[in-house]
């Protein structure tokens, strides 16, 4: 064999040898065991820490909530859908709190009116109109949205107490307590609300707007004189407008 060829073969062999050694060290151990990939990568993916836990763990401690949840419309919803992943909370419940949101926007994520939502799948509420004064949780128990409403309805005997109104209409109460009407019960102006309590969306409360209605208490000669009630001459005082055009009904000394 000529020298050149022999040299060439030697060089070639060295390169091949180098290549094979390099390959031996560089290619990962389990590469190709199952396919053109590192078989260990499967385990690597499995080892990822999980964050959303089994909900049986929730009901172990929060039995009351889970019991009430299992009767309502939210019964199939996982706790962590609203409260976030529970892995840290179960490690140390006192330090790591679950997420909690009582904002209207939070409920609106599912319940806001949207053409894309099927009305048979989910109850939809026009959040720009539906009782905008209050938080959803004031009237609805988030764990079982019907329960709180049922409680309200079952308290019919307390129908004269403003407390039952405040449950849902707390914003109005805040305005009312600031002003002169704070001692006037809601029913005095809005009438009895038995039906409204039963189904608030279907039966609305009476909303007075006529001058004569205010005149019942405030009109000279119409209402019986009583201490502390301001008397207005309905025939003279700004006769072109309604009272509520200027005065806020719940706090009449504030003007619009």
């Amino acid at each position: 064999m000529p020298n050149q060829l022999r040299n060439l073969i030697i060089v070639f062999a060295i390169f091949v040898g180098l290549f094979l050694t390099a390959r031996h060290f560089l290619v990962p151990k389990t590469f190709g065991d199952l396919g053109h990939y590192r078989a260990d990568a499967l385990q690597y993916n499995i080892d990822h820490e999980k964050k959303f836990v089994d909900t049986t763990l929730c009901s172990n401690c929060h039995t009351d909530i889970s019991n009430s949840k299992y009767v309502g419309a939210h019964k199939l919803i996982n706790c962590q859908t609203c409260h976030g992943a529970g892995n840290k909370h179960i490690e140390n419940p006192t330090i790591n709190k679950m997420e909690k949101s009582s904002e209207r926007e939070f409920c609106a994520k599912c319940h806001a009116k949207n053409l894309a939502r099927s009305s048979t799948v989910i109850k939809q509420v026009d959040i720009t109109k539906h009782n905008i004064d209050s938080k959803c949780v004031n009237c609805h128990n988030p764990h079982s949205p019907e329960i709180k409403m049922a409680q309200v309805a079952s308290n019919q005997n307390k129908k004269d107490e403003p407390a039952i109104c405040i449950m849902c209409h707390d914003k109005i109460d805040k305005i009312k307590t600031k002003g002169m009407h704070k001692s006037v019960p809601c029913q005095s102006c809005h009438g009895e609300g038995l039906n409204h309590i039963k189904s608030p969306s279907k039966s609305n409360m009476f909303k007075p707007s006529k001058r004569e209605f205010c005149g019942k208490c405030h009109g000279i000669g119409i209402a019986p004189k009583s201490k502390g009630i301001k008397q207005i001459d309905l025939k003279e005082h700004n006769i072109e407008n309604k009272c509520i055009d200027c005065h806020i009904g719940h706090n009449p000394l504030e003007f619009k």
Binding site: A108, K109, C110, A112, K113, N114, L115, I127, T128
Partner: peptide
Amino acid sequence: VDGFKQPVL
């Protein structure tokens, strides 16, 4: 992630 806003229909 933050849900969809109720669109102005």
